[in-house]
Simulated scan of single mutants.
Amino acid sequence: MSESAQHPWTPVRFAENGPVRLAYDRFAGPAAGEPLLLMTGLGVNRLWLPDGLCHLLTAAGFAVARYDQRDGGESTHLPPVATGNPVTALFRKRGDAYTAEDMADDAIAVLDALAWPSAHLLGVSLGGAIAQRVALRHPGRVRTVTTMSAVPGDVAGLRTLRFIRLGTLAKFTRLKFPATREGAVAASVAVARLLASPARPFDEDAARATAERTADAGVHDQQAQSRQIGAQWHGGPISVLRHPTLVLHGADDPLIKPTAATAIAARIPNARKLLLPGVGHELPEPVWPTVVGELRALADADAGRGVRP
């Protein structure tokens, strides 16, 4: 087995946005590929993004990098705030710790550290909302935007609730596990079960193997999740975006309603929506070829435009 196959990611490095340090790495492969930055969801670290998917993306001509959001993984974790419950954080009029603009600027700090003048963005869940905000705030640094299982990037507070299945979110916040590695693994398996498509049997062995590889307290750190979800957006509406945009969403998503994808696609000019049958709030292996093919087509369409925003 080759060295790159054994260790497909570069050693972790850190970008800086003010006092916040952001852990990132790159997938081994040709440096000449088109830059693609992967953006993770609420409470999960960058290891959650499947290596197999990243291998396919590299084979399709992308140079792939990923990073931990602030308050996630190996990136800077901020001090506790008054709101320690993600559900409650949705109702607040402002974030206590930082803004959504700060989180968008984190992505740009990572691009700067990678020496990428611009990049395609693929954001999953919270990462999808952040990807939209990065394109709004830094349009010249973004080539294309792909969101998956995300809400519109310009909604906040009570307006977000129309897209979220509160029953699932409540179950998510009620999960209690010890602050140990074993607790993190058990929490990851429980979260994976909650977010999987009910249309297919849940593979607990596979979920546990993934949890063992990505064990992190973020999946049950409600303080960190509250700070992330409470970060408020003060910028413009997504309707002004002019980037090629792809909106992916699991047809069986038990957390974010597919109407969120409909709203994003309806408001961003020429955005394309694709519902993924048999997919929940997740990135299961059977859907990887579809995701990669769609991103490749989107990037090719961007190359044909000539001029970016």
Score class of each variant (00 low, 15 high):
P289L: 02
G236H: 05
S197N: 07
Q6A: 15
E212W: 06
D51I: 13
R92Q: 12
A97F: 03
I130N: 15
I264R: 02
L126N: 10
A28F: 13
R272K: 14
M103I: 13
C54T: 08
R296Q: 15
V247W: 07
L47N: 06
T144I: 10
D252F: 08
Y67T: 07
G250P: 02
S125F: 06
V219G: 00
V189S: 07
L169F: 11
A190W: 01
R227L: 15
A135W: 05
P277A: 10
A187C: 05
F91W: 12
P289N: 04
V124R: 03
P80G: 11
V307S: 15
I256G: 00
M103D: 10
V191G: 00
A217I: 15
L53Q: 05
H234C: 09
L36D: 06
L36H: 05
L38F: 15
P244H: 08
R92H: 06
V279P: 00
T147H: 09
L53A: 03
E282D: 14
G73T: 06
Y24M: 07
V191W: 00
A119I: 04
D302H: 12
Q223E: 15
R21W: 01
G18P: 12
R174P: 10
R26C: 07
T168L: 03
V12M: 14
A297H: 12
G235A: 11
A303G: 13
G140H: 09
E204H: 05
L241Q: 10
Q225G: 01
A251I: 05
S226I: 12
A31V: 07
A15D: 01
L283Y: 10
S4G: 09
V134P: 14
G73H: 05
N17Q: 12
A184P: 03
L275P: 08
M148C: 14
L175N: 00
P79D: 04
L195K: 00
G61V: 02
T214I: 10
A184I: 00
Q6E: 14
E294C: 11
R200K: 12
T290F: 01
A186F: 01
L57M: 10
T88S: 15
M148D: 13
M148V: 11
A170I: 13
A179Q: 06
R159P: 02
D252G: 09
T88W: 02
E16Q: 15
P50M: 09
A196I: 01
A187S: 08
A299G: 08
I164H: 06
